[in-house]
Design a protein around this nucleic acid. Structure first.
Lengths: 234, 234
DNA sequence: ATCTAAACCAACCAAACAGTTGGATGTCAA
DNA sequence: TTGACATCCAACTGTTTGGTTGGTTTAGAT
């Protein structure tokens, strides 16, 4: 009897719904502000299922982060020949969906400098991108290329990490499609110019007043990165 | 009647201590994770004083933000002739003390795109910097200069906003003084190159596909910024 | 001296919270 | 059919939380 069409027990689906709901909740409120009850309700599942599947709020948070980062890594292609346009595509992907940036920010704030569980895996992803970037920029895949990748990611992401700042600096125009397109173009231009002016020495226009002189001796690529704690600027 | 309203028991000092404790607490845990009890205890004051002075947790948070931003604006000089070095000094100030970056991030995440109370004041500060930047870069103080300021701030701040990313990309070397100096040099070089290659017109390599042409009408500083909601990238 | 009002605090409160429990319900294998 | 097990949920719990209250201390004004 009771055909039970409404509740086909599907553990995997429940898990997926929780991850999805958790992503939205944590992207909006962070881990401290995120509410398990809201996540469960939004997923249409009982709260206990969170603990059955993930064990704790923090574990769910980490699972969400891992999933989103994997998805993002798969979505964003590696740098190709036109590095500026690659940054532009990064810009576009953030413009289309800010969940990624926000989650990365929550993560940075929450974990500070503690090493994350998937540290090595992520480092490998970045190492791959450093290689691709070095190839397209025509430089060695050394730490200079790594730093360049870091800066380029920053260029393409910053306006979405700090939307208030963008609005305050650029003005209401930043909110319009035209303003956004303009900003994108500017970011792309700065990225191109920065790369061109940094790798070869002198490039397009006025060129960079060489200031990166003591930078040289690093040598090989930083593949994994065990890293203790402490941030960049201890 | 209504005589002098002085401080029977040094109200100003209490307020100051609360602001200081709140700064530390909110920088570390954000507004959702920050605890009023901890702030009061750390300030050596009764919890109720928070409400007597500021009214609510959120109000205290805003007061902290306002104070820190004012302090930062006063500390960081305006861009001078050497724009790269100016970005370098921004880098240094963040390296010396990450409170600022973290608070800005919490703010960005918490207020999203809602206009802040001190919107106009901050917009004015930025407008001043846009002017200074335009002068030193030798361009018009239009929206292009504004976007350039935004990008430069991003370049100098990004490594400290995302320390995990920096560590994963650059490797453990990012934690050493030498690595930090190297990164600073790279950031400065990229900033210089970006400015040099952007103002002249044609950038170096891939070159910017000129799309920033309709930029003109902004002209003067974007004070106020009424802005509805929506972020930079809708 | 005495009155007044602000600064201050210990104790309190209701709500919200992460996490648990005990049992009902469905699934599969023998 | 039956036994074993996994999925799921309503209701519950112990604690933490932002915020309040009632009353006490302090200092300036009269």
């Amino acid at each position: 009897m009771m055909g039970a069409m409404m509740a086909p027990r599907d553990s995997a689906a429940t898990r997926r719904k929780l991850l999805e709901a958790g992503r939205a909740e944590f992207a909006e409120h962070g881990i401290a502000g995120g509410r398990i009850d809201r996540i469960a309700e939004s997923a249409g599942v009982n709260k206990e299922r969170v603990y059955g599947h993930f064990g704790s709020k923090e574990k769910l948070f980490q699972a969400v982060l891992e999933a989103v980062k994997a998805e993002h890594a798969a979505t964003l292609p590696a740098p190709d020949e036109d590095i500026g346009e690659w940054v532009g595509r990064l810009f576009d992907s953030h413009a289309a969906n800010r969940t990624m940036v926000r989650l990365m920010m929550w993560e940075a704030l929450y974990f500070e400098d503690r090493p994350l569980p998937d540290d090595t895996a992520r480092a490998d992803v970045y190492a791959t991108k450093v290689l691709a970037l070095a190839r397209s920029a025509g430089v060695e895949p050394d730490s200079t290329a790594a730093m360049m990748l870091l800066c380029l990611l920053g260029l393409g992401t910053w306006p979405f990490a700090m939307p208030q700042m963008a609005r305050l600096i650029i003005g209401p125009r930043a909110l319009t499609p035209a303003g956004r397109a303009e900003l994108r173009a500017h970011v792309v231009a700065m990225a191109s110019a920065a790369v061109a002016g940094t790798v070869g020495g002198a490039a397009g226009a006025g060129a960079a007043p060489a200031a990166a002189e003591e930078a040289e001796g690093v040598g090989t690529a930083p593949a994994s990165a065990p890293g203790s704690n402490e941030s960049v600027g201890g």
